[in-house]
Design a protein around this nucleic acid. Structure first.
Lengths: 325, 325
DNA sequence: GTGAAAGCGCTAACAT
DNA sequence: ATGTTAGCGCTTTCAC
């Protein structure tokens, strides 16, 4: 910028005015400055600008795994909102590791992102308290924050699971298995709660051998499902607690001769062709809603922290309507 | 930091030393500084650090659409590499719009990212020349750069498509349709070239009514495919130029009574269950390779720009082995 | 309409 | 082992 000023034979501030489109520059001067900029290939250094202005026009998004098809659309929705507010998005995956979540979130704060959207891996977010006090707007998505009061945008996991399980019950099932993510994950326990509620409302007993919370890699899911299907009181239907579980369950059930009913939480591409009944969340809406809330705060809104709950949708496609064997 | 120094009763530089884990501080002093840091909730301002050091420890990734299941794993792989080099990842979607790609890439440069990974939307990247000269390491992925010499990490679109089409020919097809992305997209024309090569090598004529390049939204793909299946010389097999096309083609073919063979470029989740034969690229490997190249350059490697080509894999699953009607 | 000076928070270089 | 000074590139303030 100094160089540009020298070359154009003007003051530093005049260049700054031109670069930022501020008024108070004669067209002629502006032209000279512009020429100098072009010939020098000058581009403003935003780091310096940030240092001076205090705002970075960037937001951070900490999620579990960008490679998971659930988070792609969510991230894209956040990015789109950021873009419409002139902000860039810095993305990081926690790999479901609380330490990594924390490390990432704090690194983003050190970069002085204006806002932070977090899909929690851990359940204690008090480490963010000083940051939030220091002005980093923070919104949690998909799962609520632990230990602090903050905005959260969630899907109704309890209600969605209850509806899905009730759907299976309505189709005649009495022995239904539930396979979900590890118990420290909020959505996993909420969905399990929904399962239990539906069973209880129907007056059905739950054999604890029908319930499995654990890692959602294919190996664990396979053994959990196999167990439920082969015990003394085998289940006739399955509720899958998330998209990873559903995918593995579908593969496994396809290998078996006897049909087993299945409803999965989260929609999956091509599930329509495979006839998989799901309780679908709108990942993009989750991201969009969270981003809107974030930017509202950045624009100065002073509302108290709120919990916004989106309602998932049951989509019957066949697998959930299979009658008991 | 000033405040911390005052509170701990030490000089500014000593605080800096403690914060950065530099040697030359007595354990006792370090403890005092650490206490001051904790009680003040101090966290280093990385913007200032960046301004001083010249490196931001961040890389930018410009891709087409983070919500596309092809880019999630790619982005995650880049992020993982960045993480292992202590860098953060800023990503943005161009929505396949060249202006937006340019705008994003330049915004990232203004932030002084250390490196840039670009999945081109446009075909002219001369706008990046000054940035690259100024030291921003740049690697192109999936499609090569236009108008400048730069590293590129690609899949062998030509070879992959040729192999896929040859596979259909080997199963007896003589009239094969090709549905691909818009012609200005490098991979689309490369794949079409592969299609033509395979046909020619088999001595088969290509009726131009069997070839459609265009937008890959369901509407366009449906009408293109429908046309090919209902003309005077209907095709008996289809080669789908990317994952979007494949998904729509599978849906459409499922609605038709007569079986039509299909091979698609790019793998898709659950394609195994639906028996869809694909030519699979390894999106994560693409991202990983590009990131490795980028960080090698950032570590000072002075190699000339190279083109690295990964070989896709044909995975027969049934749809590509259906014989002609 | 324009510019000079101060300073954002940090680190490199050089004292002490 | 610790502190001081200068300055990264920009914007803010205020004077011209």
């Amino acid at each position: 910028m100094k160089d540009v000023a020298a070359r154009a034979g003007v003051g530093l501030k005049t260049v700054s005015r031109v670069v930022n489109g501020e008024p108070g520059v004669t067209p002629d001067t502006e032209r000279r400055v512009q020429e100098a900029i072009d010939s020098l290939g000058f581009r403003r250094n935003d780091s310096a600008r940030v240092l001076r202005k205090g705002r970075t026009a960037s937001v951070g998004l900490v999620l579990e795994d960008l490679a998971d098809p659930f988070y792609g659309p969510l991230s894209r929705a956040v990015e789109e909102a950021a873009r419409s507010h002139g902000a860039l998005l810095i993305n990081g995956s926690s790999a479901e590791d609380p330490d990594r979540e924390r490390e990432l979130a704090l690194a983003l704060c050190a970069r002085r992102v204006d806002g932070l959207i977090v899909i929690p891996a851990g359940s204690d977010h008090r480490y963010l308290e000083p940051e939030i006090r220091a002005g980093v707007a923070t919104v949690f998505v998909d799962r609520p924050a632990g230990g602090i009061r903050a905005d959260a945008v969630l899907s109704d996991s309890f209600g969605g699971a209850r509806e899905g399980v009730a759907h299976l019950i309505a189709h005649g099932h009495r022995r239904i298995g539930f396979v979900g993510d590890r118990p420290h994950i909020h959505t996993a326990t909420e969905r399990l709660r929904g399962y239990r509620a539906a069973m209880e409302e129907a007056g059905l007993p739950v054999d604890e051998a029908w319930v499995a919370l654990g890692p959602t890699d294919p190996g664990h899911v396979r053994s959990a499902v196999t167990g439920m299907l082969s015990g003394p009181t085998p289940v006739t239907a399955l509720f899958a607690g998330n998209n990873r579980v559903t995918v593995t369950a579908v593969r496994l059930l396809a290998e078996r001769p006897a049909p087993v009913a299945l409803v999965g939480f989260d929609d999956i591409e091509l599930a329509d062709l495979l006839g998989i009944t799901v309780v679908a969340q709108d990942a993009a809406a989750l991201g969009r809603t969270a981003a809107e809330r974030l930017f509202r705060r950045l624009d100065g809104a002073e509302e108290p922290p709120a919990r916004i709950v989106l309602t998932p949708t049951l989509i019957p496609r066949g697998s959930g309507e299979i009658p008991p064997a």
